[in-house]
Amino acid sequence: MDLIFTIAVGLLFAASLYMILHRHLFKLIVGLMVFGLASNLYVFAIGRLTREQSAIIPGDADVAFEPFADPVPQALILTAIVIGFGLQAFAIVLVKRLYQVSDSEDIDELKNTDKIDSTEK
């Protein structure tokens, strides 16, 4: 069962990087989101996997008995998902505004701020 996650994580990371490297604003944002998905999945998988038995203490017990899913990566990912949502929502809006302002979706054309002799004041 590790295999599925290994393949999925590798694939997602590869795809996200591929999209980020594409010079397109829209692809960039999608790539960043997939990157977030990939890292979440990575954290989930690396905390070892337990089938079906979730991290909830049954009503008739005082403690959780093994095997149960590791709640720690879950909590971490939950936090990471939420934070990621905030950042990604911001990024979407940023891309939208940037596209409005620069009127170009080609990221290669957005390099004015890096130039040594740019004409800004």
Partner: peptide
């Protein structure tokens, strides 16, 4: 415009 342009690079690289 400059802020947004700079921010794009900032955001991308820092999200990675």
């Amino acid at each position: 415009k400059q802020q947004l342009e700079g921010a794009l690079k900032y955001v991308t690289i820092n999200l990675i």
